[in-house]
Write a protein that binds this DNA or RNA. Structure first.
Lengths: 340, 340
DNA sequence: GTGAAAGCGCTAACAT
DNA sequence: ATGTTAGCGCTTTCAC
């Protein structure tokens, strides 16, 4: 293809790396004002009345030059950053979680925060290092961080770390409660609970289980027969066998995937839902409606949950009290399908 | 609870926000040297022979003060950052993807890069803004970005954007090819392809489908009968009906979830695998072994894939050619279960 | 080998 | 209303 005259030409335009970023100085020059004014306009600093003319002239220039403030410089100067870091525990990520992340990101964006996520499952980089590296001013977890970790995060530069306290696990508890109540409402008096095998899920699972236990207690029946069920047929069969022995008739699964395992275990034993056992999952993942039979499950209004979490973040950032959260009724509810 | 004497006391220790971060100045002072030296030691600048004594004195001080360079300052001064940003398309995230992310993060960490991810599904923040905000010097996508987007990313401050060209979609293609070859190898001469309904998946799906088409071509049989199948029973039933009409006997599904939908559609029609149709998925998600029957699927060695991708990133960062990638045989292969 | 000094691009007092 | 100025914490020439 190439002639022997020299490869230099090709390389010239090989990587079309465009013009370098433009600086606030460039914008100032282009608009015929000083950097200060540019800064004021672009951050529309309150308490300043800048002539519409100047303003639009600056905005124009910025637009034209595709100016984008350099994050590091801005952060350094301002002493804060717009980055929020979400730490996702080492757990199987499913559609439920990603939906939540998206909603949270969207909600935070409306407050000017940019969300990025870090998976705890990745080795080689501790959360506080990540926090420092991206200069996050907010770090958000699924469950409260233990004090040491939180401390480390603050030292790594975080302004606020959430969730700070118990409050936020209410949704989790509620899911478990709804599951059990649903089963109890349909006449089941002896409940089983399928607990996930994956250790990253334990904390969350404890909360959901707690909710189920509470519901049983309130209904005056025995607490659920808890059996660990990982995502393998063999284990599921064992679990099912155990429940049979205990005369269980309704099973709450930690989540939909665990529920699917239960269903598989039942099938293996020649049993089927809802006749032999009623089973209810949680999270309402897309495949929940594709199981045989379709899975009754607890569905979260992720949009609302994300929004609420974002509220909490903003409140905490501005030192306010995280406004009393609305009743969660519209945030989580069971969707009845045929497995119960 | 509080007396009227004043709430000040409680607030004092309410938030145990620890001592402020220590600066390189602090370390310098504590070690009795200048900031320069601290910087040299901590970044162990090459070509400098600093006495072991001084060095350890500094390292000690840094340790003791839990010193962590401020990312924004470092980035500003050095003109580069250690942040890599992975953009995940708007698609249902599953265990496969999260595993990949973890592996990639781990591999990159070994080269000093910190990976964070951004979900495209989140509205309100364009990728280039996120890139700028976190000061990423590397942006990684699943499929090559279109030129405009890539351009925007460079302007947003990225040093390198990947994947740059076709190359990286080879794994995708290969998955489709393996699916089809598996079916063909088992005697099927008329193949169906279940294409995902979710638009975020299309690009990837095209690649996989391409691989299947190639395989059919190589085997001298007709290309697959492609039917879009989203994650609903109704659609799945239609798809199955179509395949019946076309005398298809083996079905490649874009991924395991789509395969599950196919299985559900078949069940609804009173059909079952592998007798009526053989079906093969892709990704080997945890629930693939829990379907009825257990799903034959294509499994990726995510560890290897992640590592290779990290190599490519490092190569591109240092301007090198992305070393010829090893044969992919050990990176993707079909795992035979009972649905075929 | 180590330190002094000059910025990196931006924000925020403080002038004007 | 706009410009001047002084840093933010760090890296990195360039002298010593």
């Amino acid at each position: 293809m190439g002639t022997s005259t020299g490869p230099a030409f090709r390389d010239e335009r090989a990587m079309s790396r465009p013009a370098k970023r433009s600086t606030s100085q460039d914008v100032a020059r282009a608009a015929g004002v000083s950097r200060t004014t540019v800064s004021f306009v672009l951050n529309d600093k309150p308490g300043l009345s800048i002539p519409e003319e100047t303003r639009s002239r600056i905005l124009d220039a910025a637009q034209r030059l595709d100016y984008r403030p350099l994050a590091s410089a801005r952060a350094l100067a301002a002493g804060r950053s717009d980055v929020a870091l979400l730490s996702i525990p080492d757990m199987p990520i499913g559609p439920a979680i990603s939906r939540f992340v998206e909603e949270l990101a969207t909600a935070l964006a409306q407050h000017g925060l940019t969300l990025v996520t870090h998976l705890e499952g990745a080795h080689g980089k501790a959360l506080q290092d990540v926090c420092a590296t991206v200069g996050a001013s907010v770090v958000i977890g699924f469950v409260p961080f233990d004090p040491d970790t939180a401390q480390a995060l603050y030292r790594a530069g975080a302004d606020t770390v959430l969730p700070s306290e118990p409050d936020d696990s209410r949704d989790m508890r509620l899911a478990g409660r709804l599951q059990a109540e649903h089963l109890i409402g349909r006449g089941h008096r002896r409940i089983g609970y399928a607990f996930p095998g994956h250790s990253g899920l334990h904390q969350m699972a404890e909360e959901r289980l707690r909710g189920a236990i509470d519901a049983c207690h309130d209904a005056g029946i025995d607490p659920p027969v808890v059996v660990t069920t990982d995502l393998e047929i063999a284990g599921a069969v064992q679990a099912v066998t155990r429940w049979e022995a205990e005369s269980v008739t309704g099973i709450c699964a930690f989540n939909d995937e665990t529920a699917i395992a239960v269903l598989a275990g039942m099938h293996e034993r020649g049993l089927s839902a809802p006749a032999d056992f009623a089973v209810i999952g949680a999270d309402d993942i897309p495949t929940a409606r594709l199981t045989i039979p379709a899975l009754t499950t607890v569905s979260f209004n992720l949009h609302e949950v994300g929004r609420r979490r974002a509220e909490a973040v903003m409140a905490s950032l501005s030192g306010r009290q995280p406004a009393a959260t609305s009743m969660p009724d519209d945030q989580v509810q069971v969707v009845q399908r045929s497995s119960t």
